[in-house]
Design a protein around this nucleic acid. Structure first.
Lengths: 295, 295
DNA sequence: AGACAAACAGAACGTCTGTACCAATGTCAA
DNA sequence: TTGACATTGGTACAGACGTTCTGTTTGTCT
């Protein structure tokens, strides 16, 4: 009834965490239990929760008041809202997929696309050790030049990466360049350079050949494909497996995009302040040119 | 108090779904609301839920009894347990993110990127109604020409979409084209055409202007941005909000890529057998040319 | 048309909830 | 030791809760 409300459960949890020290023993006990079982708050009564926490009901009301809430109801409402908001993102995926796929043929396509995309992305993030990306990052930063090779659907990805990386460092080029074969761009590549190459089933001959000749010259290879057994993996120092499953006639670039975004982030982070400054001046220049509208 | 209990919310939901047909009107209304908002059951009172569902409180009691539960309390408890059990999966990700982010500064960047990317993707899929994409698909298929407009990081996305859509149908063009301004490509666009436009905060002036002039000519607009209040949304017939959050200095295209993949899939599915045949012949030709290696 | 059953709304009941109040206890300074 | 103060436990109460009962409405079958 007061002017409370309008604070999310995350914020409340954070406040409780930092306030733990200055709470009285019983209050701390209650707060501790709430912090460890936040969801239980949303589905319990004062007495029920009090018993679970080994505390008197009063204490919970006092805990709520401590955080300037009008009472336990307001306190609980915050957690309830949190439970409801989770629905959107963390809802039971299987059930959601089922319900969507019932909406006709396109619903099924939608559900399958969703499932594939999310799985590809999750697998990439959970099965890839950031330390390996870090190693790759260092190799790129220490190289003389870095080539990014992708054909077909992967060409835009390669190009975009080169474009963005170019803001932070020099010597990043996308291949193939202007109608030529990938190998042409690698004419003077040697062991001081890095080649980032990607191709997915069915594997493209040109990429394979480019990787082969580059490797023969000692160029460091960073290979990206959908299988550790892909033909560009064996000669690569750095290997990343990215899922591209999709019900469509092409392969999905969702997880691939995520990989390059992470790689880019690592590059900027490791490149030091000079890269950050370079990016900022880039943005400032654009702002000054009136490229953006002020909302 | 009875022997109820011990059935999961999934099972109850399934039972309700299949029993929907044999329920009386009010009971069906109540059951329908519960099926669409199962989580709300767990955090509401009879009266509160009844009001949300547009039903009288005792109807909910009858609904519970219909499924051989001792009362609304038992009914609600099932959903409450469901809410609590979700904790595990929910916490899994939270815990994983935490453990990763402890691995130094880059680990934190990795974890944040992962969290953002997965959230963006999940939100897109869960908050976008495939029926709306279907409407957009039909508009595109019925159009004379379709333009896909994206600048900066979005240009490769637009280009790639036009490239792939070109396999299935005619008249899809990416803008801007070859160093010209986006508006230039729209010189002869009118109400028979569709313009797919995207820009994200900070919004790009050229995109805004292109959308404005195209809309003035009656061209159908499909807008994609990170907010429903984005300046290209108001004149659009078809609007899609795509999250682009990321800890990086650019915006994330992960969810955006997913959107276009789905749109493409819908296009092919609705375009009929001719599109499929066209794609297949495309692949066959490539195969014959020896573009791919046989593993 | 009337009889009947099913479905629903309204009011009333006992129970449990959240909270305010006060007593009991512990803590510290004078 | 005493008193002031903060913290905690116990109790009582008004209101909201889930539920039941009863009357009304609705639809169906003779």
């Amino acid at each position: 009834m007061d002017g409370d409300l309008k604070i999310g459960s995350e914020e409340l949890v954070a406040r409780m965490q930092s306030a733990l020290g200055e709470l009285s023993p019983e209050l701390r006990k209650a707060a501790g239990y709430v912090l460890e079982n936040p969801r239980e708050v949303g589905v319990s009564s004062v007495r029920g929760l009090a018993e679970s926490a080994g505390v008197k009901p009063n204490t919970l009301v006092r805990l709520a008041n401590f955080f300037e809430l009008s009472g336990f109801d307001a306190f609980r409402d915050i957690f309830r809202e949190g439970l409801l908001r989770e629905e959107e993102t963390y809802q039971d995926r299987a059930r959601w997929l089922q319900s969507v796929s019932r909406k006709g043929q396109l619903g099924q396509l939608f559900a399958e696309s969703a499932d594939n995309a999310m799985t590809n992305l999750e697998r990439f993030f959970t099965e890839t050790d950031p330390a390996r990306i870090e190693l790759a990052t260092d190799a790129i930063l220490q190289s003389r030049r870095t080539f990014v090779l992708g054909v077909g659907m992967n060409y835009p990805v390669a190009h975009n990466f080169a474009y963005l990386a170019g803001m932070a460092m020099d010597g990043v080029t996308a291949l193939p360049h202007g109608g030529t074969l990938p190998v042409d761009g690698l004419a003077r590549a040697d062991e001081r350079d890095v080649l980032i190459a990607m191709t997915f089933r069915p594997y493209r001959r040109e990429v394979l050949e480019a990787v082969g000749t580059a490797a023969a010259r000692g160029t460091q290879i960073l290979s990206i494909s959908d299988s550790p057994a892909a033909p560009i993996m064996d000669v690569a120092e750095h290997r990343f497996v990215i899922g591209t499953d999709t019900p469509q006639f092409f392969h999905s670039t969702v997880a691939l995009a995520a990989f390059f975004e992470v790689l880019l982030g690592f590059l900027v982070a490791r490149a030091g302040p000079r890269a950050v400054a370079s990016i900022e001046s880039f943005h400032d220049r654009r702002q000054a040119l009136g490229i953006y509208v002020d909302e």
